[in-house]
């Protein structure tokens, strides 16, 4: 139905090229004051040494995770590794007990390389997401949860208009501008024909498109998706990931928790693998798909034996598993 491979990495490349060529962008400017986040260059996410505990139990233990600007990054790992938790921490829904989460206007340094200031190589502009006012954060990052549902008789258009919340006064209603943005978001998500339907009557794939449209109505620079293909049939999974790729190609950085490793291998530019541990989820590997989705990484994490095949037409990795 759709080829997920073309245009991969181009957006990320383009972004990094722009940054390195533009002298005005070098130097560590404060994004809050210069408001450079409003320009069109994609923004990345850089989470460092993030810790999160619940009732004294570590859920995330010093997790480093990055989402390069304009790329699709997959957050992988078995159940309980803390994928959803990490997304909620990046979205600012919960505050980590330690570590920091930055929005990065340029190439994201790999973990261990530091954020620039330690190295004296200030090529990236960053802004602390944890210190940002929540409404401003909601204008930069949108989160699509897993299985977000409502019992209310809400139309699709009204659901998408909720995405305008951070852009207007706390008590204000929909403006014409809000309606225009919502209509454009529905169009972008391929859900324009659903506008008048009730959310409760949609199929899984349709509902996912609507949630993506709601997130797009926030006009975010970063899209955080929690298992966007969960409970979808194969066609809807492919359609969803193809939509996600086209959004990334338009400059929206995507960080998606994913369960299906082959789907991640097809759709992601960059992957981060989390493993659950007795004292919290840790990152075991991060980087390009080809380097990370290999038996040496996956076998211990999932407790299986992995075989990596090549897709005959796209050349992308296809993963199969046997019991260890």
């Amino acid at each position: 139905m759709t080829d997920l491979a073309p245009s991969r990495r181009t957006a990320a490349r383009r972004a990094s090229d722009q940054v390195s060529q533009d002298p005005a962008r070098s130097g560590r400017a404060s994004l809050a004051t210069s408001d450079r986040l409003q320009d069109e260059a994609p923004l990345g996410v850089d989470a460092r040494r993030v810790r999160w505990t619940v009732d004294g139990r570590l859920v995330l233990d010093d997790v480093d995770a990055t989402a390069p600007p304009g790329a699709v990054s997959g957050l992988l790992g078995p159940n309980g590794a803390g994928k959803s938790t990490l997304l909620r921490l990046v979205a600012g829904v919960q505050r980590p007990d330690g570590g920091r989460v930055h929005l990065v206007g340029g190439p994201v340094p790999e973990p261990g390389q530091g954020l620039g200031q330690e190295q004296g190589e200030p090529h990236v502009r960053t802004e602390d997401l944890l210190a940002m006012p929540r409404r401003r954060r909601a204008r930069l990052l949108a989160l699509v949860e897993q299985d977000a549902a409502t019992d209310l008789p809400l139309t699709v258009l009204d659901a998408v208009l909720l995405g305008r919340t951070p852009h207007r006064g706390l008590l204000a209603g929909d403006s014409d501008d809000d309606r225009a943005v919502a209509a454009a978001a529905l169009e972008r998500a391929g859900a324009a024909d659903l506008a008048g339907r009730l959310v409760g009557t949609l199929s899984g794939g349709e509902r996912q498109r609507v949630h993506l449209a709601r997130a797009l109505a926030q006009e975010p620079r970063v899209l955080l998706l929690d298992e966007p293909t969960n409970h979808l049939d194969v066609a809807a999974q492919l359609a969803t990931m193809s939509l996600v790729r086209s959004l990334a190609a338009q400059g929206v950085t995507v960080l998606a928790a994913l369960h299906d490793l082959t789907l991640a291998a097809q759709a992601c530019d960059h992957v981060v693998v989390l493993a659950p541990g007795t004292d919290g989820g840790r990152v075991v590997a991060a980087g390009p798909v080809e380097e990370v989705l290999v038996p040496e990484v996956l076998d211990p994490v999932y407790g299986v034996r992995t075989t990596v095949l090549r897709h005959p037409s796209t050349g992308r990795p296809v993963l199969t598993f046997e019991p260890a």
């Binding site: 979205a91 829904v93 204008r139 949108a142 949860e145 409502t150 209310l152 809400l154 909720l162 951070p166």
Partner: peptide, 18 residues
């Protein structure tokens, strides 16, 4: 408008800046 933001739950409301 505030109550609308709770339509898809607390997490969604929080992610909308509420």
């Amino acid at each position: 408008s505030l109550l609308d933001a709770f339509t898809f739950g607390d997490t969604a409301a929080s992610a909308l800046g509420v």
